[in-house]
Amino acid sequence: MEFFLVQLLNGLAYGLLLFMLSSGLTLIFSMMGVLNFAHASFYMLGAYFAYQCSKWLGFWPALVVAPLLVAGIGALVERFGLRTVHKFGHVAELLLTFGLAYVIEEIVHLVWGRAAVDYQIPEALNFTAFHILTSSYPAYRVFMMAISIAMLIGLYLGLTRTRVGLVIQASLTHPEMVEALGHNVPRVFMLVFAAGAALAGLAGVIGGNAFVTEPGMAAAVGSIVFVVVVFGGMGSLLGAFIASLLIGMVQTFSVGIDYSIGDLAGLFGAQIPEQFASITLARMAPMLPYLLMVMMLVMRPKGLMGTRET
Protein backbone atom coordinates (compact mmCIF):
# COMPACT_ATOMS: atom_id res chain seq x y z
CA MET A 1 0.00 0.00 0.00
CA GLU A 2 2.78 2.38 0.95
CA PHE A 3 4.61 1.54 -2.25
CA PHE A 4 1.47 2.13 -4.28
CA LEU A 5 0.75 5.50 -2.70
CA VAL A 6 4.32 6.70 -3.15
CA GLN A 7 4.33 5.60 -6.76
CA LEU A 8 0.99 7.31 -7.31
CA LEU A 9 2.39 10.60 -6.05
CA ASN A 10 5.58 10.15 -8.07
CA GLY A 11 3.57 9.44 -11.20
CA LEU A 12 1.37 12.45 -10.56
CA ALA A 13 4.37 14.75 -10.05
CA TYR A 14 6.07 13.52 -13.19
CA GLY A 15 2.86 13.72 -15.20
CA LEU A 16 2.23 17.29 -14.10
CA LEU A 17 5.75 18.29 -15.07
CA LEU A 18 5.22 16.69 -18.46
CA PHE A 19 2.05 18.68 -18.83
CA MET A 20 3.85 21.94 -18.10
CA LEU A 21 6.29 21.06 -20.82
CA SER A 22 3.77 19.93 -23.36
CA SER A 23 0.96 22.43 -22.84
CA GLY A 24 2.93 25.15 -24.61
CA LEU A 25 3.91 22.76 -27.36
CA THR A 26 0.29 21.70 -27.87
CA LEU A 27 -0.76 25.31 -28.26
CA ILE A 28 2.01 26.02 -30.76
CA PHE A 29 1.60 22.75 -32.60
CA SER A 30 -2.16 23.02 -32.92
CA MET A 31 -2.27 26.64 -33.95
CA MET A 32 0.74 26.93 -36.17
CA GLY A 33 1.29 23.34 -37.19
CA VAL A 34 4.89 23.73 -36.13
CA LEU A 35 6.52 20.71 -34.56
CA ASN A 36 8.75 22.82 -32.38
CA PHE A 37 11.92 20.81 -31.80
CA ALA A 38 13.36 23.70 -29.82
CA HIS A 39 10.58 23.52 -27.25
CA ALA A 40 12.65 21.39 -24.90
CA SER A 41 15.48 23.87 -25.41
CA PHE A 42 13.23 26.52 -23.88
CA TYR A 43 12.82 24.21 -20.92
CA MET A 44 16.59 24.00 -20.63
CA LEU A 45 17.01 27.77 -20.99
CA GLY A 46 14.45 28.23 -18.23
CA ALA A 47 16.52 26.07 -15.92
CA TYR A 48 19.78 27.84 -16.76
CA PHE A 49 18.28 31.31 -16.46
CA ALA A 50 16.80 30.30 -13.13
CA TYR A 51 20.19 29.02 -12.00
CA GLN A 52 21.80 32.33 -12.94
CA CYS A 53 19.01 34.43 -11.47
CA SER A 54 18.94 32.48 -8.23
CA LYS A 55 22.66 33.11 -7.91
CA TRP A 56 22.16 36.84 -8.29
CA LEU A 57 18.65 37.49 -7.01
CA GLY A 58 17.45 34.34 -5.28
CA PHE A 59 15.03 31.60 -6.23
CA TRP A 60 11.72 33.48 -5.88
CA PRO A 61 12.56 36.30 -8.29
CA ALA A 62 13.93 33.64 -10.65
CA LEU A 63 10.56 31.96 -10.68
CA VAL A 64 9.19 35.04 -12.43
CA VAL A 65 12.22 36.42 -14.27
CA ALA A 66 13.39 33.23 -15.97
CA PRO A 67 10.10 32.37 -17.71
CA LEU A 68 9.78 35.99 -18.87
CA LEU A 69 13.28 35.89 -20.37
CA VAL A 70 12.44 32.65 -22.13
CA ALA A 71 9.21 34.19 -23.39
CA GLY A 72 11.24 37.04 -24.85
CA ILE A 73 13.50 34.61 -26.66
CA GLY A 74 10.47 32.69 -27.87
CA ALA A 75 8.95 35.87 -29.26
CA LEU A 76 12.19 36.70 -31.07
CA VAL A 77 12.37 33.21 -32.54
CA GLU A 78 8.81 33.49 -33.81
CA ARG A 79 9.18 37.02 -35.14
CA PHE A 80 12.52 36.70 -36.91
CA GLY A 81 12.74 32.99 -37.51
CA LEU A 82 9.47 31.18 -37.99
CA ARG A 83 7.69 34.08 -39.63
CA THR A 84 10.47 34.34 -42.21
CA VAL A 85 10.31 30.71 -43.17
CA HIS A 86 6.55 30.34 -42.80
CA LYS A 87 6.06 30.82 -46.52
CA PHE A 88 8.29 27.87 -47.27
CA GLY A 89 6.02 25.46 -45.46
CA HIS A 90 5.97 23.32 -42.37
CA VAL A 91 9.10 21.35 -43.18
CA ALA A 92 11.20 24.51 -43.26
CA GLU A 93 9.66 25.68 -39.98
CA LEU A 94 10.37 22.36 -38.37
CA LEU A 95 13.93 22.33 -39.63
CA LEU A 96 14.46 25.84 -38.30
CA THR A 97 13.52 24.71 -34.81
CA PHE A 98 15.63 21.59 -35.32
CA GLY A 99 18.69 23.71 -36.10
CA LEU A 100 17.82 26.07 -33.29
CA ALA A 101 17.87 23.22 -30.79
CA TYR A 102 21.41 22.34 -31.93
CA VAL A 103 22.60 25.92 -31.68
CA ILE A 104 20.97 26.58 -28.31
CA GLU A 105 22.64 23.49 -26.87
CA GLU A 106 26.01 24.60 -28.20
CA ILE A 107 25.52 28.10 -26.80
CA VAL A 108 24.62 26.65 -23.41
CA HIS A 109 27.87 24.67 -23.61
CA LEU A 110 29.75 27.88 -24.17
CA VAL A 111 28.08 30.01 -21.55
CA TRP A 112 27.61 27.54 -18.70
CA GLY A 113 30.01 24.75 -19.59
CA ARG A 114 29.30 21.16 -20.40
CA ALA A 115 29.00 19.70 -16.93
CA ALA A 116 25.93 20.10 -14.77
CA VAL A 117 25.61 23.36 -12.87
CA ASP A 118 24.99 23.57 -9.15
CA TYR A 119 21.33 24.59 -9.21
CA GLN A 120 19.87 23.37 -5.95
CA ILE A 121 16.48 23.41 -4.32
CA PRO A 122 16.01 26.58 -2.20
CA GLU A 123 16.50 26.06 1.52
CA ALA A 124 12.98 27.25 2.29
CA LEU A 125 11.55 24.28 0.41
CA ASN A 126 14.15 21.72 1.34
CA PHE A 127 12.27 19.76 3.98
CA THR A 128 10.00 16.77 4.27
CA ALA A 129 6.38 17.70 3.67
CA PHE A 130 4.73 14.59 5.07
CA HIS A 131 5.20 10.90 5.64
CA ILE A 132 3.38 8.04 4.03
CA LEU A 133 3.92 5.36 6.67
CA THR A 134 7.72 5.07 6.52
CA SER A 135 8.39 7.01 3.31
CA SER A 136 9.00 10.70 3.46
CA TYR A 137 7.72 12.97 0.73
CA PRO A 138 9.76 16.10 -0.03
CA ALA A 139 8.14 19.49 0.12
CA TYR A 140 9.66 20.53 -3.16
CA ARG A 141 7.67 17.92 -5.05
CA VAL A 142 4.51 19.23 -3.45
CA PHE A 143 5.58 22.69 -4.54
CA MET A 144 6.13 21.46 -8.10
CA MET A 145 2.68 19.96 -8.19
CA ALA A 146 1.18 23.13 -6.77
CA ILE A 147 2.86 25.25 -9.45
CA SER A 148 1.69 22.90 -12.19
CA ILE A 149 -1.88 22.95 -10.96
CA ALA A 150 -1.81 26.72 -10.54
CA MET A 151 -0.53 26.95 -14.09
CA LEU A 152 -3.28 24.64 -15.30
CA ILE A 153 -5.94 26.78 -13.66
CA GLY A 154 -4.33 29.96 -14.97
CA LEU A 155 -4.23 28.53 -18.46
CA TYR A 156 -7.84 27.45 -18.25
CA LEU A 157 -9.01 30.85 -17.05
CA GLY A 158 -6.84 32.65 -19.57
CA LEU A 159 -8.24 30.65 -22.43
CA THR A 160 -11.87 30.74 -21.42
CA ARG A 161 -12.26 34.11 -19.72
CA THR A 162 -10.22 36.49 -21.83
CA ARG A 163 -10.72 37.81 -25.32
CA VAL A 164 -7.28 36.74 -26.46
CA GLY A 165 -7.96 33.34 -24.97
CA LEU A 166 -11.10 32.97 -26.99
CA VAL A 167 -9.27 33.93 -30.17
CA ILE A 168 -6.58 31.39 -29.36
CA GLN A 169 -9.15 28.73 -28.67
CA ALA A 170 -10.84 29.49 -31.95
CA SER A 171 -7.48 29.42 -33.73
CA LEU A 172 -6.84 25.98 -32.29
CA THR A 173 -9.75 24.45 -34.10
CA HIS A 174 -10.52 26.86 -36.95
CA PRO A 175 -7.39 28.86 -37.81
CA GLU A 176 -8.63 29.91 -41.26
CA MET A 177 -11.92 31.16 -39.89
CA VAL A 178 -10.21 33.28 -37.26
CA GLU A 179 -8.05 34.86 -39.89
CA ALA A 180 -11.06 35.49 -42.07
CA LEU A 181 -12.70 37.31 -39.18
CA GLY A 182 -9.92 39.84 -39.29
CA HIS A 183 -7.86 38.94 -36.26
CA ASN A 184 -4.17 39.59 -36.38
CA VAL A 185 -3.24 35.94 -36.49
CA PRO A 186 0.53 36.51 -36.77
CA ARG A 187 0.47 38.52 -33.57
CA VAL A 188 -1.58 35.86 -31.86
CA PHE A 189 0.98 33.34 -33.09
CA MET A 190 3.82 35.34 -31.59
CA LEU A 191 1.97 35.68 -28.34
CA VAL A 192 1.19 31.98 -28.19
CA PHE A 193 4.72 31.07 -29.10
CA ALA A 194 6.10 33.33 -26.38
CA ALA A 195 3.58 32.02 -23.87
CA GLY A 196 4.38 28.43 -24.80
CA ALA A 197 8.07 29.13 -24.39
CA ALA A 198 7.39 30.74 -21.02
CA LEU A 199 5.51 27.66 -19.83
CA ALA A 200 8.43 25.47 -20.87
CA GLY A 201 10.74 27.94 -19.15
CA LEU A 202 8.70 27.71 -15.96
CA ALA A 203 8.91 23.94 -16.12
CA GLY A 204 12.67 24.41 -16.41
CA VAL A 205 12.80 26.63 -13.34
CA ILE A 206 11.14 24.06 -11.12
CA GLY A 207 12.42 20.96 -12.92
CA GLY A 208 16.02 22.10 -13.22
CA ASN A 209 16.77 21.86 -9.53
CA ALA A 210 14.54 18.91 -8.79
CA PHE A 211 16.48 16.96 -11.40
CA VAL A 212 19.75 18.10 -12.99
CA THR A 213 20.50 21.26 -14.92
CA GLU A 214 22.87 20.23 -17.68
CA PRO A 215 23.15 20.72 -21.46
CA GLY A 216 21.67 17.31 -22.25
CA MET A 217 18.42 18.00 -20.41
CA ALA A 218 16.72 19.33 -23.53
CA ALA A 219 17.52 16.28 -25.61
CA ALA A 220 16.43 14.02 -22.73
CA VAL A 221 12.86 15.31 -22.76
CA GLY A 222 12.83 16.45 -26.40
CA SER A 223 11.01 13.53 -27.88
CA ILE A 224 8.85 12.60 -24.89
CA VAL A 225 6.96 15.89 -25.12
CA PHE A 226 6.09 15.09 -28.71
CA VAL A 227 4.71 11.80 -27.52
CA VAL A 228 2.46 13.65 -25.09
CA VAL A 229 1.24 16.10 -27.70
CA VAL A 230 0.66 13.50 -30.39
CA PHE A 231 -0.89 11.06 -27.98
CA GLY A 232 -3.17 13.65 -26.46
CA GLY A 233 -4.29 14.83 -29.84
CA MET A 234 -4.03 17.93 -31.94
CA GLY A 235 -5.72 21.01 -30.63
CA SER A 236 -6.66 19.56 -27.29
CA LEU A 237 -5.19 20.86 -24.07
CA LEU A 238 -7.31 18.44 -22.13
CA GLY A 239 -5.92 15.62 -24.25
CA ALA A 240 -2.39 16.77 -23.49
CA PHE A 241 -3.26 16.88 -19.80
CA ILE A 242 -4.65 13.37 -19.78
CA ALA A 243 -1.77 12.08 -21.90
CA SER A 244 0.78 13.68 -19.55
CA LEU A 245 -0.74 12.05 -16.49
CA LEU A 246 -1.16 8.76 -18.29
CA ILE A 247 2.43 8.66 -19.46
CA GLY A 248 3.67 9.80 -16.06
CA MET A 249 1.72 6.97 -14.42
CA VAL A 250 2.67 4.36 -17.01
CA GLN A 251 6.36 5.18 -16.66
CA THR A 252 6.22 5.22 -12.89
CA PHE A 253 4.15 2.12 -12.32
CA SER A 254 5.82 -0.02 -14.95
CA VAL A 255 9.06 0.38 -12.97
CA GLY A 256 7.43 -1.53 -10.16
CA ILE A 257 6.21 -4.39 -12.34
CA ASP A 258 8.59 -7.27 -12.78
CA TYR A 259 6.57 -9.28 -15.27
CA SER A 260 8.82 -10.18 -18.15
CA ILE A 261 8.29 -11.07 -21.76
CA GLY A 262 9.17 -14.62 -20.76
CA ASP A 263 6.25 -14.67 -18.31
CA LEU A 264 3.96 -13.40 -21.01
CA ALA A 265 5.17 -16.03 -23.44
CA GLY A 266 4.79 -18.61 -20.66
CA LEU A 267 1.09 -17.81 -20.46
CA PHE A 268 0.75 -18.96 -24.03
CA GLY A 269 3.08 -21.87 -23.42
CA ALA A 270 5.69 -20.41 -25.77
CA GLN A 271 9.44 -20.70 -25.29
CA ILE A 272 11.56 -17.74 -26.30
CA PRO A 273 15.31 -17.11 -26.05
CA GLU A 274 16.60 -16.09 -22.64
CA GLN A 275 17.82 -12.66 -23.70
CA PHE A 276 14.30 -11.70 -24.77
CA ALA A 277 12.55 -13.58 -22.00
CA SER A 278 14.49 -11.76 -19.30
CA ILE A 279 13.24 -8.34 -20.37
CA THR A 280 10.85 -7.11 -17.72
CA LEU A 281 8.26 -4.41 -18.08
CA ALA A 282 10.38 -2.37 -15.69
CA ARG A 283 13.31 -2.46 -18.08
CA MET A 284 11.11 -1.31 -20.91
CA ALA A 285 9.42 1.47 -18.93
CA PRO A 286 10.96 4.46 -20.71
CA MET A 287 10.34 2.88 -24.12
CA LEU A 288 6.64 2.42 -23.51
CA PRO A 289 5.61 5.98 -24.40
CA TYR A 290 7.07 5.61 -27.88
CA LEU A 291 5.33 2.30 -28.35
CA LEU A 292 2.10 3.92 -27.24
CA MET A 293 2.63 6.81 -29.63
CA VAL A 294 3.30 4.62 -32.65
CA MET A 295 0.27 2.50 -31.86
CA MET A 296 -1.92 5.52 -31.36
CA LEU A 297 -0.82 7.10 -34.62
CA VAL A 298 -1.47 3.93 -36.56
CA MET A 299 -4.84 3.23 -34.97
CA ARG A 300 -6.17 6.72 -34.36
CA PRO A 301 -4.01 9.50 -35.80
CA LYS A 302 -6.23 12.14 -34.24
CA GLY A 303 -4.87 11.19 -30.86
CA LEU A 304 -6.79 10.72 -27.64
CA MET A 305 -8.94 13.85 -27.72
CA GLY A 306 -7.82 15.41 -30.98
CA THR A 307 -10.13 17.23 -33.30
CA ARG A 308 -8.14 16.81 -36.51
CA GLU A 309 -5.30 14.83 -38.00
CA THR A 310 -2.73 17.49 -38.82
Partner: peptide
Protein backbone atom coordinates in the same frame (compact mmCIF):
# COMPACT_ATOMS: atom_id res chain seq x y z
CA UNK B 1 17.14 0.92 -16.51
CA UNK B 2 17.68 2.48 -19.93
CA UNK B 3 20.85 4.47 -20.37
CA UNK B 4 20.39 8.21 -19.95
CA UNK B 5 16.63 8.11 -20.48
CA UNK B 6 15.31 8.18 -16.94
CA UNK B 7 14.33 11.67 -15.84
CA UNK B 8 12.91 10.81 -12.46
CA UNK B 9 14.45 8.04 -10.36
CA UNK B 10 11.81 8.37 -7.64
CA UNK B 11 9.95 5.24 -8.81
CA UNK B 12 13.17 3.21 -8.70
CA UNK B 13 13.97 4.55 -5.26
CA UNK B 14 10.52 3.63 -4.04
Amino acid sequence: HPLGKVKDFAPYVA
